[in-house]
Simulated scan of single mutants.
Amino acid sequence: MSSSAAPTVEDELVHEFGPLLRVYKSGRIERPLMLPPVEPGLDPSTGVESKDVDLGVYSARLYLPPAAATAGAKLPVIFYTHGGGFVAESAKSPNYHRFLNDLTSACPALGVSVDYRLAPEHPLPAAYDDCLAALGWVLSAADPWISAHGDLARVFIAGDSAGGNICHHIAIQPDVARLKGAVLIHPWFWGSEAVGEETRDPAGHARGAGLWMFACPGTSGADDPRMNPMALDAPGLETLACEKVMVCTAEGDFLRWRGRAYSEALTAARGSAGEQEVELLETEGEGHVFYLFKPDCDKTKEMLDRIVAFVNAA
């Protein structure tokens, strides 16, 4: 007859945030959704070549589409920041690797996907700092792929969920270089007051910022301007360092209303003509970051086509 050892105090679960993160009293950390990383190299489906560049405490995965070899001019640069609530996921995830291959091939564009440090081992602002430093590295054209093939007058920042939040944080910095555009996909913003059809239940609404409070222990709360760009003390949205912005939301995403409110506030602050363009894409019948898990569905293709058009518009 077999028996198993009784659980110890060290096995006690002290923090759990859905499937993203579990932290035990012993200090053990689990990230159930994270898949084994994939290696860079030639993608047979798209012909995109990728490589990893070690940049110290963080790294970047670069993507070079086959068009780079034949294009008569340099390609736009898409600087991508992955999601995962600041506590999970990676640029080396098979889902993100597939998406970057597809996106850079379709544009075509040179891609840079940042593998920034994660909380709780590295609490915020570590992720923000890494991504800002990585953008500076891109703009320095220190890598031969970037110097040979990247058009640094056409740099787009893009990201999903927490990565969308990072994109806003980058673009709102007063000293960041002027960017051609930003694509925020299902961005993770929140606030103390509900917007749209968000829950009005105080306890339920407060849970929307629980992971943020954990990942950023020095935060002032849900209305920290890094989490709520529409907070009273947040920098004015008219200062966003982008010629144009695209915001993507999904009908089944609890962040939908926050993304829509951000788009509306940005439009009001910047105007909607010429270089002040703000575009909103709302996907019906899908949930948060659906395109990562359903890369071949029609709605993913529609979203990809819209992003490609946004990048390639004059």
Rank of each mutant, 00 (worst) to 15 (best):
V308W: 03
G85S: 08
D130E: 06
H122Y: 06
V247A: 09
E264K: 13
P202Q: 09
F290C: 10
L42V: 13
T267H: 06
P295A: 13
C297W: 00
T219L: 03
W190C: 06
G208C: 04
M246A: 12
S263T: 13
L35Y: 07
G163H: 03
E284M: 11
H186N: 15
G136F: 10
R270Y: 01
H122T: 06
S272Q: 09
G150Y: 07
I78E: 03
S90D: 01
G259F: 04
L152P: 01
V278A: 09
A231K: 10
P76G: 12
V9C: 07
R117L: 08
A126N: 02
D130A: 13
G287V: 07
L110Q: 11
L110T: 10
F99T: 10
A148Y: 00
K74S: 09
A206M: 05
T8L: 13
R256A: 08
P66D: 03
A153T: 13
L139Q: 12
R22G: 03
L118F: 01
E251L: 06
Y96A: 08
D115W: 01
L110N: 11
I185E: 00
H168C: 12
P295S: 11
P225S: 09
A142Q: 15
G84S: 09
H168L: 14
T249E: 01
M230S: 08
S140V: 09
V176H: 11
C242K: 10
G150W: 07
E286V: 15
A158R: 10
R226K: 13
G287F: 01
R61F: 00
H122S: 11
A134C: 06
S93D: 14
F293V: 00
D233Y: 01
M1V: 14
I157R: 07
